[in-house]
């Protein structure tokens, strides 16, 4: 397995710490002109999504993690297990509710996403940045309420609640940003 020296440290590096995979999301080099160099890093645990703050000194190193992103589509949910299929070789991957985390809100049958494999085992997924979801239920908006500043919760086809402007109605399709969980726009249907 490859080793990264401090000089290789950069954002986006996939590394293994205490037997778990992490992604380096921030790296700050600090060094008094005549003194020791330090690398202040923020690392995201790819299994638990927690953030780790670590300082390394010049000459330290980290092991690379064997992390692979695979294109796949969401098939169905069975009990607490989410089942995905590799787009190319039709292999099936199973992820637990914990591994899927909040992304369950955006999973509709057949949706394309990326499965993250660590040492060839699926550990989590990355949904597309934007998904389109059908509104299954919402309270009707008050008449004339067209301002986008007034929001209300709506229930979408996956069962998740999304905050939307008051003019959204049942049967509408809305676009949602999966990185923030925010409503983006109403999708015009043909």
């Amino acid at each position: 397995m490859a080793t990264y020296k401090t000089n290789d440290f950069r954002k986006g590096l996939r590394v293994e710490i205490n037997g778990e995979p992490y992604m380096m999301i921030e790296m700050n080099f600090v060094k008094p002109g005549k003194g020791n160099a330090f690398y202040k890093c923020k690392l995201r645990n790819l299994l638990r999504n927690t953030i780790l703050d670590r300082t390394y000194k010049g000459g330290d190193s980290l092991e690379s993690a064997d992390v692979e992103e695979v294109g796949c589509q969401y098939l169905y949910k069975q009990g607490d297990t989410f089942v995905f299929m590799n787009n190319v070789d039709f292999d099936q991957y199973e992820l637990s509710a914990e591994q899927v985390g909040d992304y369950w809100k955006y999973l509709t049958e057949g949706m394309k996403c990326q499965a993250i494999l660590w040492n060839e085992n699926p550990i989590t997924l990355t949904p597309p940045n934007h998904v389109e979801l059908k509104v299954e239920y919402c309270e009707p908006g008050a008449k004339g309420d067209t301002a986008t500043s007034v929001t209300k919760p709506v229930t979408v086809e996956t069962g998740a609640e999304i905050l939307c402007p008051a003019f959204i109605e049942m049967g509408n399709v809305i676009k949602v940003d999966t990185r923030t969980g925010d409503y983006v726009e109403r999708v015009n249907q043909k």
């Binding site: 060094k31 008094p32 003194g35 020791n36 703050d53 670590r54 300082t55 390394y56 000194k57 330290d60």
Partner: peptide
């Protein structure tokens, strides 16, 4: 309350001072 390098105990006195300087003094 901070995360020094794992092997910080192996550094010398100037290393520890640099670490504290970078983190708390500077």
């Amino acid at each position: 309350d901070f995360q020094p390098p794992e092997n910080w105990r192996n550094m010398d006195r100037d290393g520890w001072l640099d670490l504290l300087f970078a983190e708390y003094v500077q």
